[in-house]
Computed example of a mutant assay.
Amino acid sequence: MKKEAPFKWETECEEAFQHFKRVLAEPPILAKPQTGETLYLYLSITEEALAAALVRENEKKEQKPVYFISKVLQDAEARYSRLEKLAFTLLTASRRLRQYFQAHLVTVRTDQAVKQVLQKPDLAGRMLAWSIELSQFQIKFEPRNAIKAQAMADFIEMTPGKLTLESWKLHVDGSSNSTYGGAGVILENQDGITIEQSVRYEFLVSNNQAEYEALLAGLSLAQEVGAKVLEVNTNSQVVSSQINGDYQTRDPILQQYLAKVNKLRKGFEHVTIRHVPRERNARADLLSKLASTKPGHGNKSLIQEVVKTPSVSTTTNAHLTISNQGSWTYPILQYLLDGTLPPDPKEEKRIKREAANYTIVAGQLYKRGFSQPLLKCIEPENTEYILREIH
Results as ranks from 00 to 15, higher is better:
C377I: 01
V306R: 08
G267R: 04
S313W: 09
Q112L: 15
E231F: 05
Q119H: 10
F370N: 13
D75Q: 15
G125N: 03
Q102F: 10
I69A: 06
G326D: 14
S175D: 04
W130S: 01
C377S: 03
T293H: 11
I156N: 07
D338T: 14
Y358H: 09
G36V: 10
L54N: 01
L254S: 03
N262G: 10
K349A: 15
Q116D: 13
V229S: 06
Q18W: 13
R388T: 12
I322K: 07
T92Q: 14
L163E: 12
D285T: 05
L170P: 03
P295A: 07
P277W: 07
A103T: 07
R126L: 12
V232N: 00
P277S: 11
A129L: 09
D191F: 06
L83Y: 02
P310R: 08
A146P: 05
T316P: 01
V361F: 08
E4C: 12
L90F: 03
I351P: 01
V225M: 11
S292D: 02
M152E: 10
Q223V: 04
G363H: 07
I303Q: 03
R96T: 05
S198C: 09
H297R: 14
L118Q: 02
P331C: 07
A282W: 02
K300S: 09
Q102I: 14
G339T: 11
Q209E: 12
F155A: 10
E384C: 09
H270Y: 12
I147H: 08
H297P: 00
Y330C: 11
D75M: 13
L290D: 04
E348D: 11
K2T: 12
E389M: 15
T315K: 12
E213Y: 07
L219V: 05
Q119N: 14
T107P: 01
I132M: 09
L43G: 00
G226Y: 00
T383E: 13
I45Q: 05
R250S: 14
I360F: 05
T92F: 13
Q237G: 05
L286C: 10
E77R: 08
I253D: 12
S131T: 05
S292N: 03
L170W: 00
L50A: 01
T249E: 05
T272C: 04
K60N: 11
E59F: 12
T314R: 14
Y358P: 00
K289R: 09
R283N: 10
Q102R: 15
R280N: 15
R250G: 12
A214E: 01
I186A: 00
N262T: 11
I139W: 00
I351W: 03
T159I: 06
N177Y: 07
L230K: 01
R126Q: 13
L221C: 02
D338S: 15
E231T: 05
V185D: 00
Q248A: 12
F370I: 10
E213L: 02
R82H: 13
